[in-house]
Design a protein around this nucleic acid. Structure first.
Length: 191
DNA sequence: TATAAGATTTACT
DNA sequence: GTAAATCTTATAT
């Protein structure tokens, strides 16, 4: 399991890089599923126009981002999709990292059923898809990432820095020039 | 109270 | 390539 200081002792951008290759594990009603993180995006709080916490906007929803790092921030987007984020940094610093994609590992049969798909491509390569695949929802908002039902683990795959692609974040055109910042990290093991 | 828009996915033309 | 699905949140009357 990742230690508590993993979420505090580095810059948010560094942690977003380090999350690549780590494992998300969930257990829901006795069903265990897991996946290797291969895409993340950093959201840098008050200064970041793309972040919910931009301009120190404290609301019932964003309050989770202000807590001490090491917990989950899960919210509903477009009224349909849950989004899973890792809250980082000390209490009062509303930074979070959106997990955009995982590679399925354990519980493939369960994941297929949840996603209502039989083929093995496209099961969890999107922030909404992976939440459906791993059964992550808003009931998990604010829980620690060493919980029985949701936890992050070290072993998965060691990702060399030179295999990480960096680019602008997806779907944040409303953020003006902040939409161009290179805060998206992608690792594609197939290449 | 009302309205607009969103850190997306999927199906259809 | 375009559009619909769907509902919470934030902001404005």
């Amino acid at each position: 399991m990742l230690p508590p200081n993993f979420y505090l002792d580095a810059s948010t951008l560094d942690i977003a890089r380090q999350l690549l290759g780590k494992v998300i594990r969930t257990e829901r009603e006795g069903q265990v599923t897991s996946g290797i993180i291969n895409e993340t995006e950093a959201y840098l709080g008050i200064e970041d126009r793309a972040a919910h916490s931009y301009n120190d906007r404290r609301t019932a929803r964003t309050e989770t981002m202000y807590a001490r790092g090491g917990i989950a921030y899960v919210y509903l987007c477009y009224g349909i999709h849950e989004m899973f984020n890792v809250v980082v940094q000390e209490e009062g610093v509303p930074h979070a990292i959106l997990v955009r994609s995982v590679i399925p590992m354990e519980g493939l049969d369960i994941i297929h059923r949840r996603r209502a798909m039989t083929r093995s491509k496209g099961l969890s390569d999107g922030p909404g898809k992976l939440c459906q695949a791993l059964a992550i929802d808003r009931r998990m908002d604010g829980i620690t990432l060493d919980s029985p039902e949701l936890s992050l683990w070290e072993e998965g795959h060691r990702v060399p820095q030179d295999e990480i692609q960096v680019g602008p974040r997806i779907g944040v055109d409303y953020a003006g020039e902040d939409a161009l910042l290179p805060y998206r990290f992608l690792w594609q093991p197939s290449q």
